[in-house]
Computed example of a mutant assay.
Amino acid sequence: MINFNGTIVSEDANILVENRGFLYGDAVFETVKIVNGKILFLEDHYFRLMSSMRVIRMEIPMNFTMEYLEEQILTLVKNNNIESSSRARITVCRNNGGYYLPQDNTVLFLIKTMPLENKEYSLNGQEYEVDLYKDFYVAKQLLSSIKTTNRLINVTGSIYAHENGLDNCILLNDSKNVVEALQGNIFMLIGGRLITPPVSEGCLNGVMRKQILELAKKIEGIEVFEEIISPFDLQKADELFVTNVIKGIQPITKYRKKEFSVETSKVLVMLLNDSLGLV
């Protein structure tokens, strides 16, 4: 079952024939993690969604409060009996009608949920190899920092990674600087400096990125920076890792011929679980 515009319906319901998110990518979305009937980082997700809707000139309904969004997600999670640990994606589209120019800026939404195996965040201990994806580049603009349904660079990059036996790829912007990974923000530890690209470089303004920037400040001997990262910097790094709300932290163990430590990633996962009361 899914939640379509406030009504729980079968996933077989035909809702895409005139849907603008499907036809034109005229939609934004958020993916959240639910643990024990609670949406993690709800406020951050809600305000990022509202900001994204404003950027693309969607009309925000009066009833679309944080409490309303929370109720809609949790009602569906309860209905699907996955309150213990699950993920939910809420997609907000402009209403049907029009071509490139919409008939109006009012919206509809769709929520889909899936169970997750674990409540707490944990590290994948297996080898995790990445490389650069250079077929297409991310534009340094505001649209790149929000979660729209136009993710073709992530799709084609994922196909490239699969075809080349990689676990992930690192995206570059039109200045040929590091932006992020296909499925999350990227962090680089070099010496005692933990660095992630600034949002102005075109990276997603990630919710987990925000948490890690704050948690890392609690680790003795580490200073945190938002700075431009060159591809040449990656092979000088002591550690590289990717962050997103569902996975938490994914250490990169190999980039080209360079192998990396995962010690800081381990510490950050402990701090993250502790901050959420998951340990």
Rank of each mutant, 00 (worst) to 15 (best):
F4R: 04
I8T: 04
E11R: 14
E11F: 11
D12T: 11
V17Y: 14
R20F: 00
F29C: 03
F29H: 02
N36M: 02
I39Q: 10
L40F: 09
F41W: 06
F41R: 04
M50G: 13
E59T: 12
I60Q: 10
F64I: 00
M66Y: 04
E67D: 05
L69T: 09
I73N: 06
N80E: 04
I90H: 01
V92Y: 02
I111L: 00
K112F: 00
K119V: 03
Y121P: 15
Y121D: 06
L123I: 09
G125L: 01
Y128F: 11
V130M: 00
D131P: 11
Y133E: 08
D135R: 14
A139T: 08
K147R: 08
T149S: 15
V155P: 04
Y160T: 09
H162C: 06
H162L: 08
C169W: 01
I170D: 07
F187T: 03
R193F: 08
L194C: 02
K210F: 01
L213Y: 07
E214H: 15
A216G: 13
K217L: 01
E220W: 09
I222C: 03
S230M: 06
V242F: 05
V242K: 10
N244H: 15
V245W: 09
I246V: 14
K247R: 05
I252L: 04
I252Q: 05
T253P: 12
E263W: 09
T264R: 08
K266D: 02
L272T: 09
S275Y: 08
L278R: 11
V279T: 14
